[in-house]
Amino acid sequence: MNRPVLFIGTAIAAALIAVLFVGLGNDPQQIRSPMIGRPAPAFALKEVGTGQTLDLQALRDTPTIINFWATWCMPCYQEHPVLIDNARLFGSKVQFVGVVFNDDEASIQKFLRERGSAFPTLLDQQGKTAIAYGVGGVPETFFLDRQGIIVAKFSGPMTTDVLQANLEKAIR
């Protein structure tokens, strides 16, 4: 029995297996956002349709949902009715804001005409707002509490359950 070989070999093997085993519990596709717990980056963006500017500062004291999306994104089609239904359901208690990422105004207006709208939709030029929020792919949704702190983030198309579960953290 060669003890050094046994000990060193076992140490290397145990370390490798342990790391891989812990790794099995992670989903590498689900990137956790460092933005959670931080104040949401301020912005003032032009609203599609009206041409007016909406300033995030003005939404203080209202829990806010910021949804990043685009008309070229297939899952966004799925998610749109969920957002509209919930925006109508919560009415003035929660403010919904859509930020359209990398798109042109004409396609957005066509999309909203055909599929309806229930909350302001803002235009993000050159993706600057998306980058400040750490948006990777659309759709991504941020939940802000009354103080304007990001309390949750969801990547991918939301269902009503997901939306309301995350919203609870923002209302609390």
């Binding site: 029995m1 060669n2 070989v5 070999g9 093997a13 297996i17 891989l20």
Partner: peptide, 25 residues
């Protein structure tokens, strides 16, 4: 099938290390 392959990797590693330690000399 990750966990199954990991179990096999662990077994093969253990087998190799023990075999080496026993017989390398």
């Amino acid at each position: 099938i990750g966990p199954t392959i990991l179990a096999f990797l662990a077994a093969a590693l253990l087998f190799s290390v023990v075999l080496l330690a026993l017989r390398i000399d």
